[in-house]
Simulated scan of single mutants.
Amino acid sequence: MKLKLLFFGITSDLMGVRQLEIALEGLASVAYLKRVLEEKYPQLKECNSYAFAVNEAYALDSLLLKENDVVALIPPVSGG
């Protein structure tokens, strides 16, 4: 299945891009996608934590992804 990935904040800095497409075989959860991304792009491990949003809604690790989903990696936000 093909997914569109969007990167924000430090995840964009670490990746050097704001978006890319990735193909996964078979069924895949958000947790599986995270493992694949950190194996393929180990620099993502430099970000201590980040959340996933799928099709503009925050997603749990157990969510199963579908063809053409848009997945955003969102780092922690601070401010005041």
Rank of each mutant, 00 (worst) to 15 (best):
S49Y: 14
V77E: 06
S78P: 04
E39F: 08
N68R: 14
S49G: 12
E46H: 14
L64G: 01
Y58D: 04
D13V: 03
L24G: 05
S78Q: 06
A53F: 01
N55C: 11
A51I: 06
L63Q: 06
K4A: 10
L63C: 04
L65E: 00
V17L: 12
K66T: 07
K4Q: 13
K66E: 15
P42T: 08
L33N: 00
D69W: 04
P42D: 05
P75W: 01
P76Q: 09
S62E: 15
L14A: 05
G16T: 04
S49Q: 15
L3W: 05
N48H: 15
E67W: 06
K45I: 12
S49W: 14
F8M: 03
L64A: 03
I22L: 12
N48L: 13
A53H: 06
S12M: 08
L63W: 02
L65K: 00
S78V: 05
F7G: 03
I22S: 02
A53Q: 07
P75I: 06
Q19H: 11
A28K: 04
L3F: 13
D61M: 01
E46D: 11
S29I: 02
L6Y: 08
K4S: 14
V70M: 13
G80W: 06
S29C: 09
I74D: 05
V30S: 00
L33P: 00
V70E: 15
L33R: 05
A72N: 09
N55R: 09
K2M: 10
L33D: 00
N55Y: 11
L6H: 09
D69T: 02
C47R: 11
L64W: 06
F7R: 01
K40M: 13
L64F: 03
A57H: 12
Y41V: 05
L3P: 15
A51Y: 10
E38K: 13
Y50L: 02
A57F: 08
I74A: 03
L20K: 15
P42V: 03
E38R: 12
Y41F: 15
F52W: 08
L44W: 07
G79H: 05
Y50F: 14
Y32Q: 14
T11M: 05
E25L: 06
A53G: 09
V71G: 02
K66P: 00
Q19C: 10
N55T: 10
L3C: 12
Y50E: 00
G79E: 09
K45R: 15
P42E: 04
